[in-house]
Design a protein around this nucleic acid. Structure first.
Length: 573
RNA sequence: CGGAGUGUGGCUCAGCCUGGUAGAGCGCUUGCUUCGGGAGCAAGAGGUCCGGGGUUCAAAUCCCCGCACUCCGACCA
């Protein structure tokens, strides 16, 4: 393409509302423009990058046996009511009514639509397995869209869904997808890590996220420094400490009540009683599908609701509102404690390492000290707290967990029969017996992958694209408008293009400095610089964006040199 | 959803407190010079000052109501 014909509106300065590197650079380099909060236009350069990522995705999906289709973006409420997500999904689901006052939504994900399709079309074990995917614009009305393409409301996603005859086959498919994802992100030139993840609103029981490592990442992940274990904080397990073995019958102690006027949080209570926060046990009241429950963790730790849900066998749970706390404990929030509480109490496994700790007294302005586990009834004990930097690895004896920041670019879920059950996606097996299909689902944020690549690959001058997803492979820069220079550049451009290399030819009537600055900003991997000086010696310069390295190459060799090194077939780079 | 902030040419921002003809830099147009890392000089174009209402002789500026955008928080007893 000729630069003069393309639409590449670069900016000297980034718009003031841009936050992170990828957003600033994509705005400045003319890749994206914002239309509304979390809603962006993809300009020609960006579209080329997205197409590159998509091409890699399509190639790997084909190799993994997945088949592409395209589902509607707009869906009727009925489908979502079948799975219950019309009520559960919350405000992220953008809803509206059509002219007949019928409820519709814009798809944030497509389990319902695909399951509906498959249940109607697939009736026999002979038709299974099916692994289907699409690449489509999604809309999630995020509470706080930010960071450009990293958390937009409208975004392009590859979403895939698999249907298998049983759990074993479904888990094999899951594994196959996991491997395909590793290939995809490797081919995109990203440094990433597959981590164990929670399942959120999608549901299911087994899941991995593919996290691109970058300081600007929104997710915290914990990785073992000794073995392969890595997980999202939402999910990370914790190795039991040495003192946590069952201590047998717990004795009652003679706890004492102390007055703690106005001291609510652990941060207030600890200094007031001159104890460490580690000697306090926090009591959190939750509302759940099984009524109110209490969760106990050490003062400096936090409860992970997902873990609590598993331990207590809950469908849902969220922290109780002030009113509920009042009813359950008889005291304002801030003074809750387990002693005398008549709702089920779940305690973190690490409390068995503690003795004579402090808890709320269920009475305003009072706490209890010298409390022990024998002083109250425990429903169940287990790992319910969030892992933190330095915790022991759950998979090996030696390792410790360390925190990293990550950008989630993909996630794979083993769904089991959550949706197929709810939506009656059944088939007849070899024996003519009706069985429920077993599902998996697999997503990749296409735009986010591109943004993550920039987060990982940029410098003060601009973007440094990994070659496989760069909008062009080579930029040809004619340094001035001398006939000789223009002719040489023109020829290199047409010859390279004919050789199958994707070339951006900067034919603009601009000064050299402007062209170099724009080239650095746009981030194409190689530039061929053609100037009068070099042409005297019949050479051009080949500059590598990443290293800044410049080599002189004979005018007669440049096309061959580049076409040998710059293939456009995805992944063969 | 709660709190805070911002809205002025394409971009970055000043002006607002203390009301009185709407500004700068960059970008854009034209001409001349220049031409290997965001050139110089000169002349230009371009703005419902987010919207609506109010106060006033007079509102970008003060007041009220909206809207949009951004940031922080949104469960931790």
């Amino acid at each position: 393409m000729r630069y003069s014909q393309m639409f590449i509106p670069t900016l000297r300065e980034a718009p003031s509302d841009a936050e992170v590197a990828s957003q600033k650079l994509m705005m400045r380099a003319g890749y994206i423009r914002k239309l509304a909060a979390g809603v962006y236009s993809y300009l020609p350069l960006a579209l080329r990058v997205l197409r590159k990522v998509e091409a890699i995705v399509r190639d790997e999906m084909a190799k993994a046996g997945a088949d592409e289709l395209l589902l509607p973006i707009v869906m009727p409420a009925e489908l979502w009511k079948e799975t219950g997500r019309w009520d559960y999904y919350g405000k992220e689901l953008l809803r509206f009514k059509d002219r007949h006052e019928r409820d519709f939504c814009i798809g944030p994900t497509h389990e319902e639509a695909i399951t509906d399709l498959v249940r109607n079309a697939v009736k026999s074990w002979r038709d299974l397995p099916k692994n289907l995917f699409q690449i489509q614009t999604k809309f999630r009305d995020e509470i706080r869209p930010r960071f450009g393409l990293m958390r937009g409301r409208e975004f392009i996603m590859k979403d895939g869904y698999s249907f298998d005859v049983d759990e074993g086959a479904a888990k094999e498919t899951y594994q196959k997808m996991h491997e395909a994802y590793e290939k995809i992100f490797t081919r995109c030139g990203l440094k990433f890590r597959a981590v164990e993840a929670g399942t959120g609103t999608i549901g299911g029981s087994l899941s991995h996220e593919f996290q691109v490592l970058a300081d600007s990442g929104e997710d915290a992940i914990l990785a073992c420094d000794h073995c392969k274990y890595a997980a999202n904080v939402e999910k990370a397990e914790i190795r039991k400490g040495p003192g946590t073995k069952d201590q047998g019958p717990r004795t009652k102690s003679k706890y004492k009540k102390v007055i703690t006027p106005g001291k609510k949080g652990v941060e207030d209570v600890a200094p007031f009683l001159k104890i460490k926060v580690e000697q306090i046990v926090k009591t959190l009241i939750f509302e759940t599908d099984k009524g109110a429950i209490a969760g106990l963790v050490r003062g400096d730790h936090n409860i992970k609701e997902d873990k609590l849900k598993i331990l207590a066998g809950l469908e849902w749970c969220h922290l109780a509102e002030e009113k509920t706390v009042n009813t359950v404990t008889g005291a304002p929030s801030g003074y809750s404690g387990p002693v005398g509480l008549n709702i089920p109490v779940y305690v973190d496994q690490e409390l068995s390492m503690m003795e004579n700790f402090c808890v709320g007294a269920n009475e305003k302005d009072a706490h209890l000290i010298d409390v022990n586990l024998g002083d109250f009834k425990i429903e169940k004990e287990g790992d319910i707290r969030a892992a933190v930097e330095g915790d022991g690895c759950p998979r090996c004896d030696k390792g410790k967990l360390h925190e990293h920041r990550g950008i989630e670019v993909g996630q794979v879920f083993y769904l089991g029969t959550k949706y197929s059950e709810a939506m009656q996606a059944k088939y007849l097996d070899q024996n003519g017996k009706e069985k429920t299909m077993v599902m998996g689902c697999y997503g990749i944020g296409i735009g986010r992958t591109a943004a993550a690549a920039i987060e990982q690959n940029h410098d003060e001058k601009g973007i440094v694209w990994p070659a496989p997803i760069a909008p062009f492979q080579v930029e040809v820069i004619a340094l001035n408008r001398d006939q000789e220079v223009m002719d040489a550049a023109e020829k290199i451009y047409t010859d390279l293009t004919q050789a199958g290399v994707e070339v951006l030819y900067d034919d603009r009537d601009e000064r050299a400095g402007v062209k170099f600055a724009d080239a650095d900003l746009i981030g194409i991997p190689f530039y061929v610089v053609i100037g009068s000086r070099g042409l005297k010696d019949k050479v051009v310069e080949l500059k590598t964006r990443q290293s800044g390295e410049i080599q002189k190459i004979a005018l007669s060799d440049i096309v061959q040199h580049l076409s040998k090194n710059c293939h456009i077939v995805p992944g063969t780079w």
